[in-house]
């Protein structure tokens, strides 16, 4: 518990994290406005108005995960961290939980904002908001796991966004491996979540092994 509290304080006191969250929310509202403007013109740009902005806004959650994990390596803070909490697996678990606790409300607010702007009827959009919250939280954890292995923010962001915005869409477009990609859930709720969860778990597992064995 103490470890989780410490990690929450670390996350909450990073100005870059606060900035990322604000920008992510702003982008969600702006994109939702764009999509609903297209609907009013009678040319909807996406089938699901609540989920549509999420495809772009997930970049903010990727950055959130990257910033939180690479901040440890930016000025040697990791040494202080490991001196305070030498059990690495426990530490990684605490970090992951703290990040999830942070990401859930941020994602929920983004989903609700998107639904409100889209003027979707309430009971129907609850499912979409819940699914996008789950998806975005898992994406944040996946990004954090990958960034922990890479350790530096710029290469981590380049790698992850390179997948989410270039390689992923192309793979989906040109090959038939939809159901197995980590970001398929961004397009429609339930079916993709299984793939996203599996990828996030795998990344966390691999990172845990690396974090345990590698020199800090």
């Amino acid at each position: 518990m103490r470890a989780i509290r410490a990690e929450l304080i670390k996350i909450g006191t990073l100005p870059a994290v606060r900035l990322t969250i604000m920008l992510t929310w702003t982008a969600t509202v702006v994109l939702a406005l764009v999509y609903s403007a297209a609907v009013r013109r009678g040319e909807p740009l996406a089938p699901d108005q609540v989920l549509a902005p999420i495809r772009f806004v997930q970049a903010g959650f990727v950055v959130l995960g990257v910033l939180v994990s690479t901040s440890e390596y930016q000025g040697g803070q990791i040494r202080t961290t490991l001196a305070a909490l030498p059990r690495r697996l426990g530490l990684l678990a605490a970090k992951t939980l703290a990040l999830a606790v942070t990401a859930v409300p941020v994602a929920a607010v983004a989903g609700i904002a998107s639904a409100v702007v889209a003027r979707e009827p309430w009971p129907e959009s609850v499912e979409a908001v819940a699914a996008s919250t789950g998806y975005l939280t898992l994406t944040t954890l996946l990004a954090a796991a990958v960034a922990t292995a890479i350790r530096h923010p710029v290469p981590a962001v380049a790698t992850l966004l390179g997948y989410y915005f270039i390689a992923g869409p192309l793979l989906r477009d040109r090959t038939g491996c939809d159901a197995y990609l980590p970001d398929t859930a961004a397009l429609g709720p339930a079916p993709g979540l299984a793939a996203t969860s599996a990828w996030a778990l795998a990344a966390l597992g691999a990172t845990a092994i690396g974090f345990q064995r590698r020199d800090a």
């Binding site: 772009f56 970049a59 962001v157 966004l161 270039i166 869409p169 192309l170």
Partner: peptide, 10 residues
């Protein structure tokens, strides 16, 4: 990087 990569998307 975030801004420009998101905007290079399909």
């Amino acid at each position: 990087l975030t801004l420009l990569m998101v905007n290079t998307s399909v």
